[in-house]
Write a protein that binds this DNA or RNA. Structure first.
Lengths: 231, 231
DNA sequence: CGTGAGCTTGACTAGGTTCAAACGGGGTGG
DNA sequence: CCACCCCGTTTGAACCTAGTCAAGCTCACG
């Protein structure tokens, strides 16, 4: 377990970075490793929230599905992110793997038990939850007030930010999600996503060597677009 | 202070309800009372988050303002609600009073200091934060996937729910916010809000004796509309 | 080399925005 | 006390963005 943690992609996550190697080993001695395949669900919104997960590898969507089929993706979950850190009876979102996923899982009770000996843990967990709330509010603003192209520009900068630490510091990255996922994240249709990509491409802001390989040619320009700065 | 707490409209809030009268008195011995007038800001998004507030009376908007004037209201804050329970350097939203507001204010440090002697406090605070996150995600779904009339139906049921405990159990309630506020909450324009109200009114789902006095004539119907159940 | 899933593009439609005007109710000043 | 005004709301008409439906394209895979 100790070795696995040293190599874990989540090694520098908000939680782990607060502890030294020995403490991490101790924390992870309570953890179970979980694997789920592409398209499978790590958890469902109606499940009782007894587990907390820390994503080690892969990418997930955090989503909610309406009875009529409409879907809203709340967030994309990357290695190092925590899932299920809520104190309520149920997760209120489902988590689906976009690519094969490995994660560490704790019993909520175990984790809460550790709070007494490691009070920093509880504080960190609260910090993580606060961060999630702030990001969700960013997203609220996007869905409430931005148009299609602004949303895509925002999305690309956001993904760039999130994946930079995995993909290295190049200007290109590979999108792990489909256009449908992007549409369901940004509250638009696939066609609108596609048209916005094409628009940004034809105007020279991005390059698409393949549909899912994006190169940001003009970050500053994208930022102006996403912030609605007419220039 | 003890007497004030007994009468406080927030007496049954998530936090207070976890403690007995004596504990509440102790908790509130650390609190300061704050008043702000209509239209004034209780706090700004860029302020450092050193205080936590508990609204005693009045109603606030929790909002974010873009440089180009676009505004998104994240939530309406009612008596008993907490504001600023985040562990990050800044509030990331501003809080504006729709009507004259009184609130109890704690120093975040003081509150955190109480965690040791009253561990239930920390747990409750986390529960409140979790609830806020879940509600914000409901809101995300609304902005991402619902049309104008569905949004208004959802909004009316939500306000009804929230205000029922203050306005009594009648079918009518008084909206404390303007149409513009509703528009900025639901991610549409004032005109669209107004048209949706008119539509629901002409179809018999609601009554408007004055613009801000709403009577729900058919809660079930409104629920079906807000859930997009075609009937 | 054929197939199919995912992506793009086009033409048309619809729902919401924009701009403009009228309405209504509460408050102020003559 | 009434006329006037102002602000928020409603309504109307034109416009436009994004949605819908349909066809064609690309590329990975069998």
């Amino acid at each position: 377990m100790g070795l696995a943690c040293q190599q874990c992609m989540a090694r520098n996550s908000a939680l782990c970075s607060a502890m030294d190697d020995k403490e991490i080993d101790y924390l992870f001695s309570f953890a179970h490793r979980v694997n789920v395949g592409e398209g499978a669900y790590l958890l469902h919104e109606e499940d009782s929230s007894q587990y907390v997960y820390n994503l080690s590898s892969g990418v997930c969507t955090l989503e909610r599905l309406a009875s009529d089929g409409r879907r809203q993706i709340m967030a994309f979950v990357y290695p190092g992110d925590f899932i299920g850190i809520i104190s309520g009876p149920f997760y209120s979102v489902s988590v689906q793997a976009l690519a094969p996923v490995t994660a560490c899982r704790w019993n909520m009770k175990d984790l809460q038990g550790l709070y007494q000996s490691h009070p920093i843990l509880e504080q960190k967990v609260h910090e993580i939850a606060s961060r999630v709330l702030a990001v969700t509010m960013d997203q609220l603003f996007v869905l409430g007030r931005k148009n299609a192209v602004e949303r895509i520009a925002y999305f690309l900068l956001y993904i760039d930010e999130r994946q930079r630490k995995f993909d290295g510091h190049s200007d290109s990255f590979i999108l792990p999600m489909t256009r449908i996922d992007i549409a369901d994240y940004l509250g638009v249709t696939v066609e609108t996503v596609s048209r916005a990509f094409s628009s940004l491409k034809s105007r020279g802001y991005i390059e698409l060597s393949q549909a899912w390989v994006v190169t940001l040619k003009d970050r500053k320009g994208l930022r102006e677009i996403s912030e609605h700065i007419s220039g």
